[in-house]
Design a protein around this nucleic acid. Structure first.
Lengths: 209, 209
DNA sequence: ATTATAATGTTAATATATTCACATTTTATG
DNA sequence: CATAAAATGTGAATATATTAACATTATAAT
């Protein structure tokens, strides 16, 4: 069910939910498609189309019920049991991610960090224990970790991905600038910050002419 | 010239170049479309199509000249004078980005960081001086900074974007989870790490069934 | 020399994503 | 009570992105 949602819709649903949670905190009970759209810099039609795809129906003239919509999005993108996540590489980027998540209750839990630096191993950072990379396979199985976020230096990317795959990881989010290869049963998402910056620079350049 | 390249092509060109630079270091002089494709997890046709769009022609049977292609991609996506970049928020994420770029010579230069923490202001991190956010407008003009990377906490996102716009920034890369608004003459790219993680988790979930 | 192979370049086809256009309907207003 | 306004939901149209199919050709092998 809901397996055929476009990738872009999945991303937007996640973002809608985040915006909706803020609205909920403010006590707002209903919201219009064009309000959501404005926040996300997209069109109202796009929002309505996405909601149509997940089968949510708003009330004419009042818009969408904030709470109901949050719940429905949760039903679709969250998994009931929750998913445990590991950070590979407890450098600046790894710690930044941990802090992003710290406090935010969510069905996604960062339950372990890994590093090769002996000074870090054994410590806890923002509530996340740091283990030796050598123990990766053991800990990943013990703690039922399904997703790994790679924040290691580029030169360790290939090795780390291999270790994760061997340990039975189900999804990898690769933040190193080095693309990695995984078998088809592992979902891989790669994001490259340098590329994003070069893209911004490119559009700045061509806007100048 | 080359203004009509698809966004996705721009991103891939940046990635091709990075892969090509590694090949060049290894002493490889030529490369086939399917080799580039394999590295980037895409098809060879996609690579050839992108290169067609930028008007690059390989040699049949030998493939593409690594050095020439690097230069051509540079001509297209780089700007001749170079572009100065600032990091807004010298926390973990900001420092991670600085370290990513440290050493890599590039036409993109991170020339300033900004923060509100007095302990950081006045210091230099990996060669990047940290200034007070209050001096943002002055420094941005003085140093001819065109692009800002936002790595501040979400609650400062709106304010920081406003300050950047007022200071005359031309492009913003927003890494906070809070979408911001900018006038149409400022290029805005937003990336949300939580969304990416939720997306990975979603596809892990649906692959489990 | 001829032939087979394996690469590029590109048109056409397809797939994915977004937007337009509008029927429908609730609510507010005169 | 009739009308106008403003919202949703969605089929159709368009735009963007990817892939298929194949003509072309340099090179290597026989």
């Amino acid at each position: 069910m809901m397996k055929n949602l476009p990738h872009k819709t999945i991303e937007r649903l996640s973002q809608y939910r985040r915006a909706l949670l803020i609205c909920l905190e403010k006590g707002q009970t209903h919201i219009y498609s064009h309000e959501i759209a404005k926040i996300q810099h997209i069109t109202a039609v796009q929002v309505r189309r996405d909601l149509m795809l997940i089968g949510y129906t708003g009330t004419l003239r009042k818009g969408y019920n904030v709470k109901d919509l949050i719940d429905l999005i949760g039903n679709i993108i969250d998994s009931a049991e929750g998913i445990n996540v590991a950070i590979l590489g407890m450098g600046n980027l790894g710690r930044a991610l941990i802090n992003y998540f710290a406090g935010k209750r969510s069905q996604l839990k960062i339950v372990a960090g890994f590093d090769i630096n002996p000074d870090k191993i054994g410590n806890t950072m923002s509530g996340v224990p740091c283990y030796s990379s050598e123990d990766m396979a053991t800990i990943i199985r013990e703690k039922n970790i399904k997703v790994g976020i790679m924040t290691v230096p580029a030169e360790f990317a290939t090795l780390t991905a291999e270790q994760l795959v061997k340990a039975g990881i189900r999804g990898i989010l690769n933040y190193t600038p080095k693309p990695v290869n995984v078998p088809p049963n592992v979902y891989l998402e790669e994001y490259d910050m340098i590329t994003s910056l070069e893209k911004v620079a490119f559009f700045v350049k061509i806007n100048d002419d």
